[in-house]
Design a protein around this nucleic acid. Structure first.
Length: 409
RNA sequence: GUGGCCGUAGCUCAGCCUGGUAGAGCGCCUGGUUGUGGUCCAGGAGGUCGCGGGUUCGAACCCCGUCGGCCACCCCA
């Protein structure tokens, strides 16, 4: 083995790659139907964009960034997530006029020890609803993610929902939480003690400390009248849209820009430690953090790798509608024309490029994943081909002009 | 960054404890079948045992190191 894909990266080859094509098409189609247009941004950005936007002392920025200096001396970073890029792009383009709904899809990069559902290069798809502070925007985005998982056939998805309030709500709450954690200091993990002052809410989300913080004060109990009303309206909207959810008072998210509504999608049957397949939240502070005008915003990110792991196995669909087989090498010119005509009609066709025995051509058809074989031999001189269903083995002589209809039967 | 398990044929793995001729299943190739794949039968090809060092008459096997994989912690999608 001379070369292999770098640690934590995967090659995805056919036929497995077909599910990625399907997932991407489904996402882009759903986004269009909800009115979200695709936003394409660079895969690397100035390092400062992420350290400012995501937060200096988050795990992602402290330890997980792929940062490098280019030949011009600029510090650049492969994007660990896309929201900061989308917001930067919108600010750069002049800011949001009214509202803006954008989607994205593509690879993200974080330097971590790989495990199930955690890769160094992974794919996220997401949407951002900008310039709308109404709870209806939160509801639409939560619903969008739920529908997407439904479309892809991910079973038993639970929406875990929480509100972490606004900055003003948290300034009082923060002191109370720190006091509580100090009182339990002896029961806390080393990491929790270290984070106690720099980012105390993160301790609520720690598996190691779940028992110690079971009766800790939670952000949802410390909402102002305004943020409590916003959250109640989000819940009412989800009820009206028939989206099931569970309130998760200890759910906090690891990026600094979130406020108010936060949520995650957890497939209950997914056997992996990294069980969240997507998540999102409101992030009203981010525009100002990145130097833009105050702009309300809510968005989500879906982890495609995890979604495809969590999904039920689906039977592979044939990769080709038909494979054309030539009995004599002189039939190649007409076979070539037939293949091109059927491809132009939207069918998936192939044939061997070199002259091979009929037996070898059938084997090639089978390996290519063809549903049918079309044999061109002496029957061609009567305007017919032999059409064989490779799954059942049944075959028939059909007229050339009926091939398309037969293949679409 | 920390820990556990694992690296042997293209793939999945046995062999390692107790050192002595490199194995299985699947896959692949050829033929049975010069107009029929997938199934069946017969035959065949394919391996510096991750890499480096040590111990030994002798190492896939024991020891040390190193690289890689998987899973978990941490963190997050």
């Amino acid at each position: 083995m001379t070369y292999r894909a770098p640690k934590g990266t995967d090659d995805i080859l056919p036929p497995e790659s077909a599910v990625w094509v399907e997932a991407e098409r489904a996402f882009l189609d759903l986004a269009e139907r909800y009115g979200y247009g695709l936003v394409l941004t660079p895969m690397f950005e100035s390092t400062e964009l992420f350290s400012r936007g995501i937060g200096e002392d988050t795990e992602v920025v402290e330890k997980q960034m792929y940062t490098f200096t280019d030949k011009g001396g600029r510090s650049l970073t492969l994007r660990p997530e896309a929201t900061a890029s989308v917001v930067r792009a919108i600010i750069q383009a002049g800011g949001v006029i009214g509202t803006f709904k954008g989607s994205y899809w593509g690879p993200m990069f974080r330097y971590e020890r790989p495990q199930k559902g955690r890769r160094r290069q992974f794919s996220q798809a997401g949407i951002e609803y900008l310039g709308e502070d109404a709870p209806g925007a939160d509801v639409e985005v939560i619903e969008f993610g739920y529908r997407y998982l439904e479309m892809l056939g991910v079973p038993d998805v639970e929406v875990q929902l929480n509100s972490i309030g606004d900055a003003a709500d948290r300034s009082d709450y923060r002191g109370e939480l720190i006091a509580f954690l100090e009182s339990r200091r002896g029961d806390l993990s080393e990491d929790a003690v270290r984070r106690l002052h720099e980012n105390p809410m993160r301790v609520l989300d720690s598996k190691a400390d779940a028992a110690a913080v079971a009766d800790a004060p939670t952000p949802i109990e410390h909402l102002s009248k305004e943020t409590a009303e916003h959250f109640a309206a989000v819940r009412a909207g989800l009820d009206a849209a028939s989206i099931p959810y569970r309130i998760a008072p200890t759910l906090v998210r690891g990026l600094d820009y979130y406020n108010r509504t936060v949520w995650e999608y957890v497939p209950l049957g997914f056997d992996a430690a990294q069980s969240s397949v997507g998540g999102g939240g409101r992030y009203d502070p981010l525009f100002e953090m990145l130097g833009g005008k105050p702009t309300a915003a809510v968005g989500l990110a879906m982890g495609l790798d995890r979604i495809l792991l969590a999904r039920e196995e689906t039977a592979p669909t044939p990769a080709l509608d038909a494979f054309v087989i030539m009995v004599e090498t002189e039939r190649r010119p007409v076979a070539t024309v037939l293949v091109r005509r059927l491809r132009d009609q939207g069918l998936r066709l192939d044939m061997t490029a070199g002259d091979r025995s009929v037996s070898a051509q059938f084997k090639a058809a089978d390996r290519a994943g063809a549903a049918n074989a079309l044999v061109i031999g002496e029957e061609w001189d009567q305007g017919r081909v032999t059409a064989r269903d490779l799954a059942t083995g049944g075959q028939a002589l059909i007229a050339v002009e009926e091939i398309e209809t037969w293949l679409r039967r």
